[in-house]
């Protein structure tokens, strides 16, 4: 009995060592030279492997940067300027700082504003809906609300608001990797400049139908009336295909356009509540939205409401 065991042990160890030796030589033979800087650069990258840089994984990005002469086309949105400077130091090259960006959802068509006219009953993803038909509402451009963007976000930066059926970005988590922008079949999500205190003003609509049709499908649709264009002192707004767009680089966050929009399509986010003229309270709906900090944005909302009430009082 014991000899059997002994024999087994010996033969197994022999096989093991032979295999190890072969493996070693094979590894030696097929070893390719790799620039050690690739490892160094990869080290400082966030290792999120999100693809936001446009390369397959952080290592791919590191390899490409080491090979390149000019770093200006490269940017890791997750690591941001800090990481890029570090990488540039390792490689002995220069980078320019870029403005940090954040994803914004350009659709406000909650069921309350945008009636559901049919019931979708297929596979639950936005891209299949958009391949099939114009969606559950009269607006074929708006959010289908099935959360493809939520599924694709690696940073838990988006969730679906159950009440509005629209995705909400948690700005603090968002790294502007752009995955959701790519995923959304209706191109609803845009990466916009993260201004001071994360303030943003943008047209929350992508409907390019004529005003009347758009308005019929959704109460908060941009109708292309150009009221905002007229009021903007910085020429930041353009209207094309009955849809206004605010250039984030020209916009000075003066908030004038927000007031004049007849359909409340322009959102202002993270601004302090402002003094509301008494007679205007009836017509101008408040559009103050706080950056939510998590799926339970309830408290913030209430607080915000209170603020408004206080201001009015």
């Amino acid at each position: 009995m014991s000899t059997t065991i002994l024999f087994t042990v010996i033969s197994l160890s022999a096989i093991g060592s032979i295999a190890a030796i072969i493996l070693y030589f094979v590894a030696q033979k097929f070893k390719v030279y790799e620039d050690p800087r690739i490892d160094q650069v990869e080290e400082i990258l966030p290792a999120a492997n999100c693809g936001g840089c446009g390369y397959p994984g952080c290592r791919g990005f590191a390899e490409a940067m080491v090979k390149a002469d000019d770093l200006s086309p490269f940017y890791c949105p997750v690591g941001g300027n800090e990481t890029m400077t570090q990488a540039a130091e390792i490689l002995g090259k220069a980078v320019e700082a870029k403005d940090p960006l954040v994803a914004v959802i350009r659709c406000s068509g909650s069921p309350e504003h945008r009636k559901r006219v049919n019931t979708y009953d297929g596979a639950s993803t936005c891209v299949i809906v958009s391949g099939l038909y114009s969606g559950e509402t009269g607006c074929q451009y708006g959010c289908h609300g099935l959360g493809d963007c939520v599924d694709v976000c690696d940073f838990e930066a988006i969730y679906m608001d159950e009440e509005t059926g629209l995705p909400v970005v948690i700005d603090d988590n968002c790294t502007a990797c752009g995955a959701c922008v790519k995923e959304c079949p209706n191109d609803i999500i845009e990466l916009r400049k993260k201004n001071k205190k994360d303030r943003k003003i943008f047209v929350s609509c992508v409907n390019i139908d004529k005003g009347g049709i758009a308005k019929k499908a959704c109460e908060v649709a941009c109708i292309g009336c150009k009221a905002c264009v007229k009021v903007c002192a910085y020429d930041a707004i353009t209207v094309e295909n009955f849809l206004a767009y605010i250039d984030p680089n020209l916009c000075k966050l003066c908030r004038k356009c927000v007031d004049v929009c007849p359909t409340n399509s322009i959102l202002e986010i993270n601004f302090p509540p402002r003094k509301v003229k008494v007679e205007a309270t009836e017509t101008v709906e408040t559009k103050k939205v706080e950056t939510p900090v998590g799926p339970t944005g309830e408290n913030e909302k209430k607080e915000n409401d209170n603020n408004i009430i206080n201001q009015e009082g």
């Binding site: 559901r116 019931t119 979708y120």
Partner: peptide, 8 residues
């Protein structure tokens, strides 16, 4: 009723 829509 609202019409159901789904792929074939």
């Amino acid at each position: 009723n609202k019409l159901f829509i789904s792929p074939s």
